[in-house]
Nucleic acid binder design. Structure first.
Ligand SMILES: NC(=O)c1ccc[n+]([C@@H]2O[C@H](COP(=O)([O-])OP(=O)(O)OC[C@H]3O[C@@H](n4cnc5c(N)ncnc54)[C@H](O)[C@@H]3O)[C@@H](O)[C@H]2O)c1
Ligand SMILES: NC(=O)c1ccc[n+]([C@@H]2O[C@H](COP(=O)([O-])OP(=O)(O)OC[C@H]3O[C@@H](n4cnc5c(N)ncnc54)[C@H](O)[C@@H]3O)[C@@H](O)[C@H]2O)c1
Lengths: 207, 207
DNA sequence: TTGTGCATGTGAACGCAATCACAAGTTCGG
DNA sequence: CCGAACTTGTGATTGCGTTCACATGCACAA
């Protein structure tokens, strides 16, 4: 492993920086200071400098950072240089939105396969991706897909996770509001949308 | 009861506990130990005890926690006792999924209004909620809606946020992958779905 | 060449959260 | 009433991440 001892929080911020930098680059800029970037992405400038410093000297004192160099550097750290294929399980409301979303490409992701257990959906296409029978999940192994996205009802989530693991998946992005048990070598990230909402009143209702 | 000096991380975990406890309660249980609950929601038992201890003595030594008492306690802390109305802006792919989602009710939320700027969508209904013209956002003030959900393209997000703030919103849940500037009194939570995905290779690709 | 302005990189200090270890309390069987 | 088996609550400790302050370095003008 090349990059040791890097705070997880730093890793969490890197995609934020990357997104901002790509946007700035598209706007024609090729250089930026930590404080300008900080204003743009909503992070303090010293935090940005500290984060970048974990990976060596990215910038030039007195001048700033070269945007292209930063983008390449972050992509390398996050290992986003190779295109990653992902598979979606559960082509319902949320699943369909994800299948139609073009924004994952920015980071080099392709959602290339979709699965469901509803006979009415199997065989249909969403954005050129054909929905397959969930019992055929094993095909992921053959197609070398290493990322799974779970968008099935909570009651099914653990079972689907088991199937994904058996199909050789290394990472799971889970939208079901529940804890999912997997072998240690598999990384699960759960996005609990309702959980975000649930904290709102605590912060906004004063009294 | 005043809750000062509580770690933000504790607040973040409370919805997780709440969700698990409600599920256990539906299963007919009325008591649980910190370690059993921990196994169920994926948190260490001492962490759970520590979290609860910030709010006084919720449990009984040697016995465990009474589920109903915990649920009521957490709801009070998070101020989830009153039903909260929320408004969605951007009835596209993601927005439609959110409008159709019944799971927010668990925490006492109702998405009661939806807005868009696309003439073809205005007037249509999704799950009995009529999509209104985004230029009518001011109506939130009258209807006493204090939460906004942003699901518009990134380029529009800041503008919509400004309009929401002007309409009296106190909290914004933002799905657009960008930083949003608001007055300090308004709480913004951004859920960057692609950002989660972007961190996957770092954790799963070894080498 | 020197001075001024600007921006990075980082050791050190600080603060918050995770983790530990155990005292204190409860239950139950006999 | 006693002892064994549990389980909570919390002070103490450790670890991690944020924040600060400033030394270091580049650019440019005169
Ligand atoms: N829609 C939202 O806004 C939202 C918000 C927060 C969380 N979530 C969570 O995301 C998940 C999906 O939500 P949704 O709104 O898309 O639900 P949905 O009911 O619209 O879609 C679920 C899909 O999963 C499929 N499915 C069910 N069991 C399956 C199985 N065993 N194998 C394969 N496919 C199966 C169904 O056929 C359906 O197409 C749920 O866990 C939900 O709690 C959704
Ligand atoms: N779909 C996903 O899976 C996904 C994933 C990650 C992030 N996001 C983000 O969520 C947001 C919405 O994504 P989506 O896939 O639903 O996009 P979408 O294009 O399907 O929907 C956007 C909706 O917003 C409406 N809109 C545009 N400008 C508006 C304005 N000024 N006022 C009111 N309404 C307006 C459009 O008419 C459309 O209905 C985007 O910012 C996207 O980056 C989506």
């Amino acid at each position: 492993m090349k990059h040791k001892g890097i705070p997880d929080e730093t890793i969490r911020r890197l995609p934020v920086y990357l997104r901002g930098l790509i946007f700035l680059q598209e706007g024609g800029q090729d250089r930026i200071s930590s404080s300008k970037l900080g204003d743009f992405v909503g992070v303090q400038s010293w935090q940005i400098r500290k984060d970048f410093s974990y990976f060596g000297e990215f910038g030039v004192r007195g001048v700033g950072y070269e945007i292209k160099k930063l983008i390449d550097g972050i992509k390398e750290i996050l290992k986003l240089n190779k295109v990653q294929n992902a598979a979606l399980v559960g082509a319902g409301n949320l699943g369909s939105a994800i299948l139609s979303y073009p924004g994952f490409e920015l980071y080099g992701f392709n959602v290339t396969m979709a699965f469901d257990n509803n006979a009415k959906k199997i065989g249909k296409k969403i954005k050129s991706i054909e929905i397959m029978d969930v019992s055929k999940l094993d095909i992921l192994k053959k197609k070398n897909v290493r990322l799974g996205i779970i968008a099935v009802p909570r009651s099914e989530a653990q079972e689907i996770a088991n199937a994904l693991v058996k199909a050789g998946v290394k990472g799971i992005l889970n939208f079901s509001p529940c804890y999912i048990m997997v072998p240690k070598k598999v990384k699960v990230m759960t996005i609990d949308i309702a959980g975000y909402l649930a904290r709102m009143p605590y912060y906004t209702l004063n009294g």
